[in-house]
Measured scan of single mutants.
Amino acid sequence: TRVETATETAWISLVTALHLVLGLSAVLGLLLLRWQFPAHYRRLRHALW
């Protein structure tokens, strides 16, 4: 049971790290898009909202 718990903890930390990385890359990508294509971003936002 001790090994299982350790594996579970490792998986949880791995998944958390993955989610953090994905979230950060998504935010960075959005910022980059907004910085590179302001007109396109505004049009996209206008279409979405």
Results as ranks from 00 to 15, higher is better:
6 A>K: 10
39 A>H: 15
18 L>T: 03
28 L>M: 11
35 W>F: 15
46 H>C: 13
45 R>Y: 07
15 V>W: 08
31 L>P: 05
43 R>V: 09
3 V>Q: 01
36 Q>S: 15
44 L>P: 05
8 E>A: 06
16 T>R: 00
38 P>W: 07
2 R>G: 10
19 H>V: 02
17 A>R: 05
17 A>Y: 04
16 T>A: 13
21 V>I: 12
12 I>E: 01
32 L>K: 05
49 W>A: 06
49 W>Y: 04
11 W>R: 01
12 I>S: 06
29 G>S: 13
37 F>W: 07
34 R>Q: 03
2 R>F: 13
36 Q>P: 07
3 V>E: 00
42 R>N: 15
23 G>H: 05
28 L>P: 01
24 L>K: 03
22 L>G: 06
14 L>A: 04
40 H>E: 09
15 V>M: 09
9 T>Y: 09
44 L>G: 02
45 R>S: 06
40 H>W: 08
34 R>S: 08
22 L>V: 14
31 L>Q: 08
21 V>M: 10
32 L>T: 07
15 V>Q: 06
48 L>E: 05
7 T>Y: 12
23 G>Q: 04
48 L>K: 04
21 V>E: 02
25 S>M: 05
44 L>R: 03
18 L>K: 02
39 A>M: 15
22 L>P: 03
3 V>C: 02
16 T>C: 11
7 T>R: 10
24 L>H: 04
29 G>Y: 01
23 G>T: 13
43 R>C: 09
6 A>N: 09
46 H>P: 07
2 R>I: 13
28 L>A: 02
6 A>D: 05
11 W>L: 08
32 L>D: 03
7 T>V: 13
20 L>E: 00
8 E>V: 02
25 S>R: 04
2 R>W: 12
5 T>W: 01
30 L>M: 11
24 L>W: 08
8 E>W: 01
43 R>H: 08
39 A>P: 06
45 R>F: 05
37 F>A: 06
42 R>E: 11
35 W>C: 12
40 H>G: 13
6 A>G: 14
18 L>G: 00
8 E>M: 00
15 V>L: 11
19 H>C: 06
49 W>G: 03
32 L>N: 04
21 V>G: 06
30 L>H: 05
45 R>M: 07
31 L>F: 10
43 R>T: 11
29 G>D: 04
47 A>N: 10
19 H>N: 02
9 T>K: 12
10 A>N: 07
19 H>P: 00
28 L>Y: 06
24 L>M: 13
41 Y>S: 09
48 L>C: 15
42 R>G: 14
36 Q>Y: 15
44 L>I: 14
49 W>V: 00
46 H>M: 08
33 L>W: 07
19 H>A: 04
7 T>C: 01
47 A>S: 10
14 L>N: 02
47 A>I: 08
39 A>W: 10
24 L>V: 11
9 T>W: 14
4 E>G: 08
34 R>V: 06
41 Y>G: 06
2 R>K: 13
24 L>F: 11
1 T>R: 10
20 L>K: 00
5 T>E: 00
33 L>F: 06
4 E>W: 10
18 L>F: 13
17 A>H: 01
47 A>H: 10
33 L>T: 05
47 A>Y: 09
43 R>F: 09
38 P>T: 08
5 T>G: 00
45 R>P: 05
22 L>Y: 04
30 L>A: 13
46 H>A: 06
27 V>H: 03
44 L>H: 01
12 I>M: 09
28 L>K: 06
